[in-house]
Design a protein around this nucleic acid. Structure first.
Lengths: 179, 179
DNA sequence: CAGTACGTACAGTTTTTTCTGTACGTACAG
DNA sequence: CTGTACGTACAGAAAAAACTGTACGTACTG
């Protein structure tokens, strides 16, 4: 009966490393651990089962699951006759990557672009004023230039995210075909 | 003399939003603010100047700069006759994006791949044992399958990062040409 | 070869974040 | 309609992270 432990060890190793590196997705170690654990479950899980499995409070499970739902790394599952909410891990890693960009990066991009455009307007008006020293205008022009470069980059980044969402990226960088 | 404030306001707005969203790069708000501030400096800055500008301790500036150096978002600059270390922001946003993946994601990938391969070996040996119930073997096979999928994804992700580092990505998703 | 300027290791403090337990609203069951 | 099961808001406790000041090692200066 040592085979079960061997399986457990193999899983635990993966869960650990996944949890550690999920900070790239902006989540904590615990949330990463939850995801890793769900990943190996055959059946969808309830909050109480997660609580049991990870030895944490139900409240934590509730908020962690919500975070993972927002990232679309976890899906809510409906099952006839079961009152408790059920959750399962999204096991398509490509899709997780895509959603992460579509959700987090996309919104950061639009925030940044919005504010930069506001500042661009302000700087342009500054440059066009008559009562401003030449020296200051030069600074403003230099800033304008920097912002334009940033906006070009964000334009590119948006097109990159587009290519993820449309899966076009996989024509450019093909998925490895499963043997 | 209100033009200077207009410039300052325009800069501050951008610095704020950049600082907020730099958590995508895994850095804190303060570090993001430091980067944003450096971005608008015409000349490289010393730790003391940063400390002055941001009203923080020199120790903080030292560690924050180190973080930004590791991400290659800031470069050390040598200037004849100046004893203090000088730093300037890397202003190529594309390059920042590329370096982030080349540094952070690449190392997460290899860690994950390493551990997953270890677990794969273990699971394979489990499946090939004679003294293990069929049921357990099925679980192991299911895990093996999951890990293989993950490894395929990491293979793809590595190729994606390759295409960033080689700049090949820009043939696929072209930069916006500055007008 | 002092003396000074600089950057950072380290320990302690403050702030922020994470985690927990309780309490409550909702919904279903009998 | 009452009772029970469930998920989560919220407040407080625990843990982690960020920040600071001091102290020290190194390297340049005169």
């Amino acid at each position: 009966m040592e085979g079960k432990e061997q399986l457990e060890r193999a899983r635990e190793r993966v869960i650990d490393v996944v949890a550690q590196n999920m900070d790239l997705y902006g989540v904590t170690d615990s949330i990463g651990r939850l995801y890793g654990m769900l990943m190996f479950q055959e059946n969808p899980m309830t909050l109480d089962e997660m609580k049991e499995e990870l030895g944490m409070s139900k409240t934590s499970m509730s908020t962690s699951v919500r975070t993972l739902l927002e990232l679309k790394m976890v899906d809510k599952v409906w099952k006839k006759g079961v009152r408790k909410d059920l959750y399962k891990a999204e096991s398509d890693w490509y899709q997780n990557f895509i959603d992460f960009f579509a959700i987090k990066w996309r919104s950061a991009i639009s925030e940044n672009v919005l504010e930069m455009k506001k500042s661009l307007v302000e700087l342009n008006s500054l440059v066009n004023r008559d009562d401003v020293e030449e020296e200051l205008k030069e600074l403003a022009n230099s800033d304008i230039n920097k912002l334009k470069n940033a906006l070009d980059y964000y334009d590119w980044l948006n097109r990159f995210v587009d290519s993820l969402e449309s899966k076009e990226i996989f024509e450019l960088i093909p998925m490895k075909k499963p043997e």
